[in-house]
């Protein structure tokens, strides 16, 4: 599913209901006790750009193998882009918007 360096967007019951209504629930993976995750696709280049943009974030190579510590509001924006585009390929659009301020 996700290539390179994924970004995990956590999906609880509320978010899952929203995705179900839009017919996007099948994009999620069941991880733990009903908690699901959307794995956003992110290339190596996009990962570097994100980490430069958010210095507190990191690529967790030890455990989750994903980009962690992005601000919650950033992830919320990415989630909304997934809903809008009905696609997991939203990082490029997100970065474009972020650069434009």
């Amino acid at each position: 599913m996700a290539q390179g360096c994924p970004i995990n967007i956590w999906i609880n019951e509320e978010r899952y209901n929203e995705l179900q209504e839009l017919g996007l629930a099948n994009m999620t993976e069941d991880v733990l006790a009903g908690m699901r995750v959307l794995k956003l696709q992110c290339t190596e280049k996009q990962k570097d750009e994100l980490l430069k943009f958010y210095p507190a974030a990191k690529f967790d190579t030890a455990t989750t193998q994903s980009i962690e510590l992005l601000p919650p509001e950033t992830k919320e924006k990415m989630f909304q882009l997934v809903v809008k585009n009905k696609s997991l390929k939203v990082v490029r659009e997100f970065l474009k918007g972020a650069k434009e301020g």
Binding site: N8, I9, I11, N12, L32, G34, T64, P72, K75
Partner: peptide, 16 residues
């Protein structure tokens, strides 16, 4: 994983 959910301020399911 649980820490990642909490950092994202996404309330985990009540089974977690």
């Amino acid at each position: 994983l649980i820490r990642s959910m909490i950092e994202d301020k996404v309330k985990p399911t009540k089974l977690i």
